[in-house]
């Protein structure tokens, strides 16, 4: 299967054929798997136009009428422009709407500073009762989207168009928001989404010299803080890696978990420092990863400096 977005909408269609009362509300955003959907399920494909605020409020109204609603639009606008609506409808009224944004992190950096999706994890973490899914491979998508499509709670889905592969992981049970990619000792690397594979690739490159850290993939927010604290206690040093701002994202969430559990461990965070501002020049994802220190070479250097010395 090509990527999580296609897996998701294919599952949506399967469920509708099986009698589930799902409607897809779109803010004028396409997906290849939605082309057939629009023809086959005309009355279940509704558009608000490029109107993300109304996407969220109308989705909630449809949910109030008993529909299972997928609200689908382009990020960051689904989360940043419509944050007030998300807070005051989905979060406050607790409707189990699934709202999904295409693009995560720097995946759409080519479109400019307005289109990078590097604050959404922080923002949605502040909305009570909303669970964020940040999937990191197709196998995970295949498993977790069955859970998402039960429409049992408000969910934010974060799609990354550059995730089109399956990762091997030690723990694919997906019980607590934390998936162990590999088990090592002393050193703990915690990452999420697109950077899961990146970290794994970098570590595999270094591993020839006997470096074997534990790698955790946080695929769901909030995650099980107790479980994370257990992992932290069992290691000496911790590194977090995220293609997201450092303020309020994965690294912050890890620090909060450790602080709340009274665990004192050195923690270093790699991510986008908001003090560096927005990417206000032309570049693709790889270019800006280098700019923000999130490319393979930069990550490897941090790992070597931080863990090896």
């Amino acid at each position: 299967m090509s990527n999580p977005r296609e897996i998701f909408f294919t599952k949506v269609q399967e469920r509708i054929r099986n009698g589930q009362d799902i409607v897809v509300l779109t803010a004028d955003l396409a997906a290849p798997s939605l082309d057939n959907f629009r023809r086959e399920f005309k009355g279940r494909y509704l558009s608000v136009g490029v109107a993300e605020q109304n996407l969220i409020t109308t989705a909630c109204g449809l949910a109030a009428a008993g529909k299972q609603v997928v609200a689908w639009g382009l990020n960051p606008f689904v989360t940043t422009r419509a944050l007030d609506q998300i807070r005051n409808t989905i979060s406050l009224m607790k409707y189990p709407v699934v709202f999904a944004g295409l693009h995560a992190g720097l995946s759409s950096a080519i479109s400019g500073a307005t289109h990078v999706v590097t604050t959404d994890l922080s923002l949605i973490r502040t909305c009570a009762g909303i669970t964020t899914y940040n999937v990191s491979d197709t196998g995970m998508a295949d498993r977790l989207f069955d859970e998402v499509l039960t429409f049992s709670k408000p969910i934010y889905l974060r799609f990354d168009k550059d995730i089109n592969y399956r990762l091997e992981r030690m723990d694919a049970q997906y019980q607590n928001g934390i998936s162990m990619i590999q088990e090592g000792k002393n050193h703990l690397i915690i990452t999420t989404g697109y950077h899961t594979k990146k970290v794994l690739d970098v570590v595999n490159g270094i591993s020839r010299s006997g470096f074997t850290p534990t790698i955790l993939d946080i695929y769901r927010f909030p995650f099980d803080k107790d479980r994370l604290a257990d992992f932290a206690s069992a290691h000496e040093k911790i590194l977090t890696v995220e293609e997201h701002i450092l303020q309020g994202g994965l690294g912050s969430a890890v620090l909060e978990a450790l602080a709340d559990h009274g665990i004192l461990r050195p923690v270093k965070r790699i991510g986008i420092d908001i003090e560096k501002g927005y990417p206000e020049f032309f570049g693709r994802r790889g270019y800006f990863q280098k700019y923000f220190g999130l490319d393979d070479e930069s990550i490897e250097k941090v790992i070597m400096d931080y863990f090896m010395h």
Partner: peptide, 13 residues
């Protein structure tokens, strides 16, 4: 917007 969604859902149902 919420009322519109509710009204639309009612029509669909």
């Amino acid at each position: 917007g919420y009322a519109a969604g509710l009204a639309h859902g009612a029509k669909l149902n």
